[in-house]
Design a protein around this nucleic acid. Structure first.
Length: 811
RNA sequence: GCGAGAGUGGUGGAAUUGGUAGACACGCUAGAUUUAGGAUCUAGUGCCUUGCGGCGUAAGGGUUCAAGUCCCUUCUCUCGCACCA
């Protein structure tokens, strides 16, 4: 393949950019707020396998956009760093004995080299790594703020325990009942944990989604995850008991249809209400439920199970006695851990009632519910409708009934409006070594005591073995000289907290540290936070929709509440890049052997080809398959640019049609780059090159602006050709070209002539011809005459510069 | 099941407010050049048809002079959630 000397060109300009600190940015106060842009990539976890082709996709997009903005006069902050705490490095340490710091830092070096080889315009002076004590000092500082705000608490809770990783996992790290990292089946285990009260922020996390410019799918996933439900808590009396039974329902309008109650097996009243003759069955059931994994409990396909407790509750609306059951389809962690069951109007209750032959009473007329011989409906209707069998409420529609019944319950002191969220508090402990130590002490006298801020960072001790103890404690627990310490309050004996933070901690606030990465007095100078925040564009994978992006928003809001950041949301605009699949549209994976290594691409085709190809594949947001042929096509385009540049440059007036294509190209590339439609911008540059290639000469008046357009996309090649044109570097410091609408205009347009909506002729005419003239031309057209002959013309629609449509009817 | 999104040539994908469907690229075909080439250049390339012409944007219906685009119904695929009362 004929090819231009990309290797030499690329290394030359990368060196030049680095030596001249071309992309370093400051907080110049003379730059007005609207001319400052913060363009952020999701920073990578430096894995041992190096960069894959998915990384450069998002990184190239933000790089092109950053370079484009700079050329248009913006002050652009575009940083990068590494999310360097986490399990893989620790698992590697367990296997090989290599200290995670060592393998992590080796991996970071590899990533840094790979990222630099693609010519991204990062401000490397701001690089950070989350495992660095200068960084995690502030992660710990934020944790202490959370603790002091009452947002961190200890609790012994059943957590998802991965027997292979020997650690607890957050709900979000469990997929299909299996550990997201190792695939091992997860089961429940009670362990003392540090929890963060993200639930306190549920409402604001939900509401503020309105304020941000994010993909609707991500917003919807977050809403779904937060899972707000509005309904009522209703109190039921228990027969022969002092205790009341409170349930949460979103359908208080179906109270008259409640035919039984169900408690979660873990509900605190179960033991009390169970009658002696039922006690044995109840206890057996509780034991069985406890032994089940979460996966077994939530397996939808399985039959409903449960037992009757022997006790009865009283329905407050009609004083009917209804039996109390227990079943594991009721979750202790949601609502009150108990429900009123309305089998006629809830699918789950319906199944349960059918299994155990419990009564079913229809109370909502959905328009089609019929009754069987027992007088019970023959299917479950969960929608809205008109109330029936509900005493004086009969005839009310569902929403009205809900309002009325809640008012009535509140008057009677039997219930009140209630809101529930699916969102749970965040289990913030990991029983691992390679994470930020939680900066707390357990003092024999004072209880839990925070490490004084002046003693931060609380650094990780050196250990011999990274193997988890498996008891639920981290490897830190066996380092006596680290664990045993003095209480800073009373001076007595104290033990350090041995749990570490989960991997999400460091990534919750890294975008703040970029603003002031070497500050050792605060997490960042408030003036710098004020200068740059919020992030104007954040690009990364959709896999972080409810993990990183929800946690980061939560921390940001806490920091906002204590006055540490000036905005209520961190990321104003979010774009998810699509996945890059292997050739043929299958997933890229090691086992399929179809993984593309960016190093190979850079070596064989060059960084510019890699960049332009990844942007040319299709829209940024969608998944698309890799194609080496497609890559070669893009490389061919850059090679043509190179060969064109070798022609003799002339300063004469270029032909009109080329000037026109150039101005059309400037317009299209400007508009498309602005909306991240890089694929169509590149297509337009190809059109320009195809046209220019037909000329003998190289017109420098066209070439200069074209190179500016090319610069964000293929910065090395553009830089080289810019210099060869006799200009001083750097092209990236030049102004973005302007187009002239007049020069971009087509003077001749093809007019389509239709008869009854079908194209019958096409004519080339001068642009801007008026309607009458167009219509006349169309009607007189020879071919059209044939089509309309002997027919009567009903209507003629004329769209200037586009078409003439003649509607005729047969006569 | 619920929620979100998507279905356009052999392939990746283009198509303001409804106004020439298939830009650009890959692949393919033919030719030129070349010792040769998977390099380069030129031409062609949605399907059917010798031609006139007809048919074409998942399927069916509707609105309109005009529908890939708007409305209704159905199907398929991808992603997320999943007994959350």
């Amino acid at each position: 393949m004929s090819t231009y000397p990309f290797t030499e060109i690329e290394s030359r300009w990368q060196k030049y950019w680095e030596e001249n600190n071309l992309y370093q940015v400051d907080e110049d106060p003379s730059v007005p707020k609207e001319k400052r842009k913060y363009i952020l990539d999701m920073f990578p976890y430096p894995s041992s396998s190096g960069l894959h082709v998915g990384h450069p996709e998002g990184y190239t997009a933000t790089d092109i956009y950053s370079r484009f903005l700079r050329m248009r006069g913006y002050h652009v902050l575009h940083p990068i760093g590494f999310d360097s705490f986490g399990l893989p490095a620790e698992n590697y340490a367990i296997k090989t004995g290599t200290h995670p710091r060592k393998s992590t830092e080796t991996n970071i070096e590899m990533f840094r080299r790979q990222i630099k080889s693609l010519g991204f315009s990062y401000d490397w002076s701001r690089e950070i790594s989350t495992h660095n004590p200068d960084y995690y000092r502030w992660t710990q500082w934020i944790f202490l703020k959370l603790y002091k705000q009452g947002l961190a608490y200890e609790d012994t809770v059943p957590i998802n325990w991965c027997p292979s990783c020997k650690t607890g996992l957050a709900n979000e790290e469990v997929t299909d009942g299996k550990c997201e990292r190792c695939g091992e089946k997860v089961f429940r285990k009670n362990i003392r944990q540090w929890m963060l009260k993200i639930t306190d922020y549920a409402e604001r996390l939900l509401e503020d989604l309105e304020k941000v410019d994010w993909p609707e799918s991500i917003k919807s996933m977050q809403r779904n995850w937060i899972g707000k439900s509005v309904g009522a808590n209703v109190v039921f009396k228990i027969e022969n008991s002092e205790e009341d039974l409170e349930v949460f329902t979103t359908r208080p309008d179906t109270l008259f249809g409640a035919t039984y109650m169900v408690l979660a097996p873990e509900h605190h009243l179960v033991q009390q209400v169970a009658t002696d003759d039922r006690r044995k069955a109840v206890e057996t059931y509780i034991r069985e439920a406890a032994a089940k994994s979460d996966l077994e409990r939530t397996d939808l396909a399985k039959e409903k199970t449960g037992v009757f407790t022997g006790a009865y509750a009283v329905n407050p609306v009609n004083n009917k006695r209804i039996p109390i059951w227990i079943s594991d389809y009721i979750l202790i962690s949601y609502g009150t851990g108990a429900i009123m069951a309305v089998p006629a109007h809830d699918e789950r209750d319906w199944e349960f009632a059918k299994t155990f032959d419990l009564p079913i009473i229809q109370v909502v007329d959905g328009g089609g519910v019929t009754s069987d011989e027992k007088g019970e409906p023959d299917f479950c209707y969960a929608g809205n409708g008109v109330a029936v069998n509900s005493g004086r409420f009969d005839g009310l529609d569902t929403p009205t009934f809900k309002t009325h019944i809640v008012e009535w319950l509140e008057e009677q002191g039997l219930g009140k409006r209630a809101v529930n969220y699916k969102l749970r508090d965040w289990i913030f402990s990991r029983q691992r070594y390679w994470g930020e130590p939680i900066p707390l002490l357990h003092c024999e006298k004072c209880g839990v005591v925070p490490v004084p801020e002046k003693d931060l960072p609380l650094t990780l001790p050196e250990v011999e073995s990274f193997t988890p103890t498996g008891t639920g404690e981290s490897p830190l627990a066996v380092i006596d000289e680290w664990v045993n310490t003095e209480c800073p309050v009373c001076g007595g004996k104290a033990r350090r907290e041995t749990n570490t933070m989960p991997q999400w901690a460091g990534s919750c606030w890294y975008y703040l540290r970029y603003l002031d990465p070497r500050n050792d007095a605060s997490l960042a100078d408030p003036a710098k936070l004020e200068y740059w925040l919020p992030v104007d564009l954040y690009v990364g994978g959709a896999e972080h929709a409810v993990l990183h992006l929800l946690y980061a928003r939560f921390w940001h809001k806490v920091l906002y509440d204590i006055g540490a950041v000036p905005t209520s949301e961190p990321f104003q605009r979010l774009v998810n890049q699509g996945m890059i699949l292997g050739e043929g549209g299958v997933k890229m994976s090691k086992s399929l052997g179809n993984v593309i290594n960016p190093d190979d691409i850079v070596r064989d085709y060059g960084a510019d080809s890699m960049r332009v190809y990844e942007m040319f594949m299709g829209p940024l947001e969608v998944s698309k398959p890799w194609s080496t042929n497609g890559l070669a096509g893009v490389h061919r385009f850059l090679d043509r640019v190179w060969r064109l540049s070798r022609r003799e440059a002339v300063d004469s007036q270029p032909p009109r049609h080329l000037v026109k294509v150039l101005h059309q190209t400037i317009k299209k590339v400007t508009d498309d780059t602005d909306i991240l439609a890089f694929n169509t911008a590149i297509a337009q540059m190809m059109i320009f090159i195809n046209e220019a290639f037909k000329e003998e000469a190289l017109y420098s008046r066209l070439w200069d602006p074209f190179l500016r357009l090319l610069a964000p996309y293929a910065p090395h090649l553009a830089e080289e050709l810019w210099a060869r044109l006799g200009n001083e570097p750097s092209v990236t410091r030049q102004d973005w070209p302007e187009w002239d609408e007049e020069l971009a205009r087509e003077e001749e347009v093809t007019i389509v002539i239709q008869v009854n909506g079908k194209v019958r002729a096409k004519v080339d005419l001068p642009a801007g011809m008026d309607k009458e003239k167009l219509e006349k031309t169309a009607l007189e057209h020879e071919r059209i005459q044939e089509w309309i002959e002997g027919k009567s013309i009903k209507k003629v629609i004329t769209i200037p510069d586009k078409l003439v449509n003649i509607a005729v009817s047969a006569k």
